[in-house]
Design a protein around this nucleic acid. Sequence first.
DNA 1: AGAGGCGAAGAGGTTACGTCA
DNA 2: TCTGACGTAACCTCTTCGCCT
Length: 289
Amino acid sequence: MMMMGKDDLGLSLSLSSPNLNLQLNLMPPTSSPASGPSTSPSFSCHQKGRWNDLVVHSENGPVLDVGGAASESRPGPLLRGVDVNWTPPGGEERNSGEDAGASSQNSTLSSVSGKRAGQDLQVPTSSRGVSDEEDAEGSRKKLRLSKDQSAVLEESFKAHNTLDPKQKQALAKQLNLRPRQVEVWFQNRRARTKLKQTETDREVLKRCCETLTEENRRLQKEVQELRGLKLSVPQLYMHTTAPTTLSLCPSCERVSNSATTTGVIHRSRSFSMPIRRVLSSAHANRSSS
DNA sequence: AGAGGCGAAGAGGTTACGTCA
DNA sequence: TCTGACGTAACCTCTTCGCCT
């Protein structure tokens, strides 16, 4: 299980509060410009040349051998039950080159749900058609990719979370999968990554909200204290305007009570300490009087 | 045996790009 | 040359469904 970095998505969020400086950088890697729908992070669909060095190769050819004709060549413990990714010799080769080959000869790989098979046959899209012979096979069997296949796909995904057509072909051939399967795997992988990231962000934002709420509560309390002081020690404020005009000097970060200031407090955390000095001073005055 | 989770895959929509009249 | 219609490809999101625990 690979852990995704925070920059797998195309969002950038920055939050800052006195007690919290939060930056969520959800931008995709710089090599993966976001150009999809505006509602969500997405990845360019025209990324030719970005995948040139990506496929994970093995010294001895494909990293895994699930496509052997002999059953003993299949990864036994890695695959539970039938190896749906096994391709009869020559079966995938007939389809090499195009996703249209998704009409796999591999009957166990049938991806046609009974409900939708008819739709597919009626309106085959560019790469999602289903052959009649596959339809005739009946219900689809859907099994997991092997661990080795998933590992190779994960490695590829780490390097790039989008697929170049050539690399899709290469991966498909390497893993004895159909290009459509590789494509779908990457789509689902991106979706899982995004979902995971969304949940993480939600937690972070939740904590941020709690922190800000607490900070707000604290500041409200300070305001109450200041107002109480103003009532009890009016002479302390005679030379100044209302407390709300207190501002923070951007250079020294001290409280300024200049009447010319706009009252904008830039850094409330720095504001807090001088305020406390004011408070202690006021308390001293009150106790002495 | 049934429920729920997970993942593979389908369907429909969006966007970007190329082509052509 | 510009422009709008059209087709295509890649992607995203939602959903379905089969397998596994």
